[in-house]
Design a binder for these strands. Structure first.
Lengths: 197, 197
DNA sequence: CATCTAATTAGATATACATCGATATAAAGG
DNA sequence: CCTTTATATCGATGTATATCTAATTAGATG
């Protein structure tokens, strides 16, 4: 399992660790050498190296008492590639959901392509999934029913239920066959609002 | 002036900021939208956005009361390119010198290409510059004088003085025309050791 | 000019994490 | 075995920074 993106950035967000990484990228080093070169105590260096190793950024080769740390370029390269393009960066928005947040729920209901595998029945989960889905639509823009349908079908075959639920949960409003998003403040805390059906 | 590398990583080392960046990479957003989407208060979002903007990662377009934040891909792309190669990563070792450390001194004596502009006369500065320079040589490897000279000339025309000073400061030893590095522990704290000439 | 709205800034508090000395582990050498 | 050497882990401490509420600024609107 590749490391969480944000954790890799946290690892890189420190001068000492950046320098450690640079040094091992030049050649293998022992902990002593690294501690001296970076200007920290050996426990501190050891601590940083363990962190980098957990993320797969450095390797370790044990030779007697001496531990030789080396460079592992793969993880870093994968991440660098991802942020090279705007599309790659845009994907960051959906990733890194906060633990315990409603958004953690939805990962159980969407597949690799981002389609809904099912519309959950439990109210809280249904709310979370609908909240995730409604955010795919632009705020302030008006969607004719035909266009709304088209977009919903990209996520799930049952666009009719989704349309109805958006209205029921007050996430969208409808007038003469045209739909638009309602302010999130109106439904954010309304986990207990009764859906229409 | 491009932002310090480590500061960019610090900016990315936070879930909220990663998601903010992802959102603005999709399209422009107001602060309200971003705060709601990420799940933080508006001041907090504003704080993060200011940070990202300082580093040139996002742009801002003011329209009445509303501030529209957008994506600036250049800074990120430059950094991604740097960590794509092992050589790029290896360069991190010399960069990000710690403030007030002896290494901060040397930035005044090297030019953009990494060549020495002069060999400082003041003992402490001279020591710092020589320490930086001697680290360019592999530990444990033996350098015939001819090879040593060749490498030194890449940094400064006066390779003879540099050779002599390495010996004087006990950073290198010489025997029958062959040079090698001495352990850093031997000269690290020896700022006051008298040079030979 | 009073009022409203959106964003920012200030101030206060809480959490995360970097660092070091002390202690523990583990291998090598007498 | 006992000592030495190289790392790693523990525990304590200090610093950086994320977050909020409250106050302030700035533009729009009646």
């Amino acid at each position: 399992m590749p490391p969480e993106l944000v954790n890799v950035f946290k690892a890189l967000a420190h001068e000492s660790r950046l320098r450690l990484l640079g040094l091992v990228a030049q050649r293998e080093h022992s902990v002593q050498e690294l501690a001296a070169a970076v200007g920290v105590s050996e426990p501190t260096a050891s601590h940083h190296l363990a962190l980098l190793r957990d993320l797969g950024l450095v390797s370790r080769r044990v030779e007697g008492n001496t531990h030789w740390y080396g460079f592992e370029g793969d993880a870093l390269r994968d991440i660098a590639r991802q942020v090279l393009t705007r599309e790659g960066v845009a994907r960051l928005a959906d990733q890194t959901p906060r633990r315990d947040s409603p958004e953690a729920v939805i990962t159980n209901f969407i597949d690799a392509e981002g389609r809904l595998t099912q519309i959950p029945a439990a109210r809280k989960k249904r709310h979370a999934v609908l909240a995730w889905l409604v955010r795919k639509f632009d705020d302030g823009r008006r969607y004719p029913e035909r266009e709304l349908n088209e977009m919903l079908l990209r996520f799930h075959w049952d666009s009719a239920t989704l349309r109805r639920e958006f209205i029921g949960y007050r996430m969208m409003a409808r007038e003469r066959g045209v739909y638009w998003r309602l302010p999130e403040a109106d439904w954010r805390a309304a986990d207990s609002a009764a859906p229409i059906d």
